[in-house]
Design a protein around this nucleic acid. Sequence first.
DNA 1: GGAGTATAGGCAATCGATTGTTTTCGGCTG
DNA 2: CAGCCGAAAACAATCGATTGCCTATACTCC
Lengths: 347, 347
Amino acid sequence: MTEPRITIIDVARAASVHPSTVSRVLNRRAELSLLPETRQRVITAARRLGYRPSALARSLRLQRTFTLGMLVPNIDNPFFPPIIKGVEDTAHARGYNLVLCNTEDSSEREDAYLRVLRERQVDGILIASSFMADATIAELRRDRFPFVLVNRGTRGSDDLAVLVDNEKGVAAALDHLVDLGHRRIGIVAGPQTTMTGRQRLTAARVTLRARAVKLDPALVSVAEAFSQEAGYRAARRLLVGVEPPTAVFGANDLLAIGVLRAAREAGLECPADLSLVGFNDMPLTEFFGPPLTTVHVPQREMGVRAADLLIAQIEGKPAATRRVTMDVHLVVRGSTAALSRSQQKTA
Amino acid sequence: MTEPRITIIDVARAASVHPSTVSRVLNRRAELSLLPETRQRVITAARRLGYRPSALARSLRLQRTFTLGMLVPNIDNPFFPPIIKGVEDTAHARGYNLVLCNTEDSSEREDAYLRVLRERQVDGILIASSFMADATIAELRRDRFPFVLVNRGTRGSDDLAVLVDNEKGVAAALDHLVDLGHRRIGIVAGPQTTMTGRQRLTAARVTLRARAVKLDPALVSVAEAFSQEAGYRAARRLLVGVEPPTAVFGANDLLAIGVLRAAREAGLECPADLSLVGFNDMPLTEFFGPPLTTVHVPQREMGVRAADLLIAQIEGKPAATRRVTMDVHLVVRGSTAALSRSQQKTA
DNA sequence: GGAGTATAGGCAATCGATTGTTTTCGGCTG
DNA sequence: CAGCCGAAAACAATCGATTGCCTATACTCC
C-alpha cells in the first residue's frame, strides 16, 4: 500500500468530531450517549473515505488479537485438513481468526513458530504437532498461556486436550485381523518420539496379548515419520523376512499406504496375500486400491471441540471438561480379508 | 497471559539504559555506535527477563507486518497443501509468516477474509481462490495492494500470476484418450464461474476439434464445484445416457475420482469399461484404484514461484516477469486403456 | 587552554485505536 | 441570576517499539 492509510483521525476530521467519538460510534459503545445525528455523520464519513480500522493498533491497545495459532505437523497429511476446517469454522463463528503453522515434523520449526505466535500475541494456541518437547509445553503451562493439545497427550498433566481413543481403535483394528484368522500380524508403528506413536504400539501389544497372539519382534517396524514414504521403508524391512506377516496394522493411514506400496513391489496382492488396516480414516481412503479398512476418527469434530475448549479458556469461561476423548470405530473396507489357504501355506 | 508483559522498557531499566538503546542493540543497528559492554548488558538483561518483542507494536510502528496472507478455496483438496508448503517455505526463508485462509468456495468468505487480511495489514496476498469477483480484485489493483494470483487468471490484466498451462495439459489428456482409440469422450467440467473451469472446457473443445472428434453436448457435464461429490453428481448425469462415453476427462483429480465412484456404482470397471483422466496429479493419486492417469502440475513449485513473485513485489524489486506459466505433462497410470471390442459394441 | 569533533546514548515523536476523565454548553431551578 | 445538572463530545494517556535528532562527555589539536 503506497496510499497513505485512512485513520480514525481522518474520519474524525471529515465528520468534525474528535477521534474518540469516531471510535465510540464505530464500536457501538452504549456507555456514552451520542447524538444520532453525530453518529450518522461519522458513519457516513467513514464509509465515504473507505475507512478500514487497523487491527494492529486495536490489538496493541486491547492486548487482544482475536487470533488463534495452530501448529500442525504436516498439512500434506489429509488427516489434518478436516481438523483444521473444524477449528477454523468454530473460531470464525466466535470472532477469531486462525494462523496456521506447518511444522514439517521438525522440532526447530515447532519452536520457531511457537515463538512467532507468541510474539504476535495470538490469544491461544492449538497444538496438533507431536514432536514438541515437553519442556516447551511446560513453558506455556508456566506462563499460563492458553493452549489445547489436539490428537496428542502429555504425560500425566491435566492440560486441555482433545484426544483419540487409541486403545479402543487399535483394539478394534487388531481384533478384526485376528477374527479374520490372522496370527502373523505385522505392525508398522509411528515414530516412538511421539505420544501417538507410542500409545498405538503399546495398545497393539496389549491387544494381541489379550487375544493370545504372539507378536514376533521381527514383525514390528518403526517408521521414522507418519508419512507414506516412511511407511514404505518400514514395511520393506517387514516384508523381506523369512516368515512375512499375513496382515499388517499401520499406525496411521499414510503408513498403511506405504505398506501397500511395499507389498505391491514385493508382488503381494492386498488383501489376497496381505491384509492391511490403517488408522484415522482420512478423506479419500475409500478410493484407494483397495479401499482401506481403517479406524475412523471424527476429524472435523475434533477441530471443533478443540477450538471450543481453547476459546472457553481464553474467555475465562468455566471449562466443563479439560479433556475430550473422541470415540472411534473400525470401518471395514476392501483391504482386509480372511486368512486364506495359500497364506497359511506360506506362513 | 495473565502475567504482565515484559517490554523493552523493563529491559532498559534492568540494563540501566534508555529503551531506544535496547531497541538498537536488539536490532543490531549499525548506524549508531554502541559500547560492546553496553550491548552485552542489554542482551543479558533481555535474556534474563525473558523478553519477547511485541510484533504488534513493531508492525504498527514500521507499517510492515512481515506477514503474507493466502486465500485457498479448499484445504481439503490435496492439490493445495503442496502449494501452500511451497509458499510457506519460501516465505519463511525470506522472513515472512503466512496466514492461511480457507474460503470454502464461498465468495462471502472470500470477501470477509480479504477484509480481515487487509485490516491486519498483511504485506501481500496470494489468491488461489477462484470464485473471487473481479470487482474485488480490481479494488486490490486500484489500491496498489501487492497480490499474486495462483492457479487462476484474470481477464486480460497484467496482474502478477502463476498459472498452469491448461491448454497444453488438456490437450495432452485428450490426445491420449483419442490415441487410445476413444471417440465418445465425456467431459466433467469444473464450475464455469471459475477461470480454470472455463479454460479447461474450452481447451477440451479445441483439442477434440483439432483431432476431428465430435463432442456430443450430452457428454459434457458441468460440476458445481471442484470436489469429489460434485464430480460424482456430474458423472451420474453423464453415464446414464443411452450412449455413454467410453472415456471421461475430469477437469481436476477430485472430479475424476467422483467419476470413478459413479462408474463403479453403474457397474463399470475402470479402465476396462471406462477410461479416465484427471488433472493436477495431486498427492496419492498413484494409490487410487486404479492409479489415476492425470496431468501433472508442479504444485510445490507453483507455491514457491508465487511467493517469490509476491515478495519481490512487496520489497520493490524489479519483477523479472509478471506472469509465470508452469509447464505440465501427462502421467499415464492405470485408469486409461485402449478402446476395447466390448466397448465398441456398447457404443 | 579553548575550540573542534567524534562517540555513546538519551529524548521525544510516532504508528492507530481505545477509554477513563474532563470540559463545554444549554437548560433548568431556586 | 447564580448555581447546578446532565448530555454530548473533547482531552489525553496508553499499548510497545522505532528512529531522527540532540546532548553530554571525552579527547584531539593548535
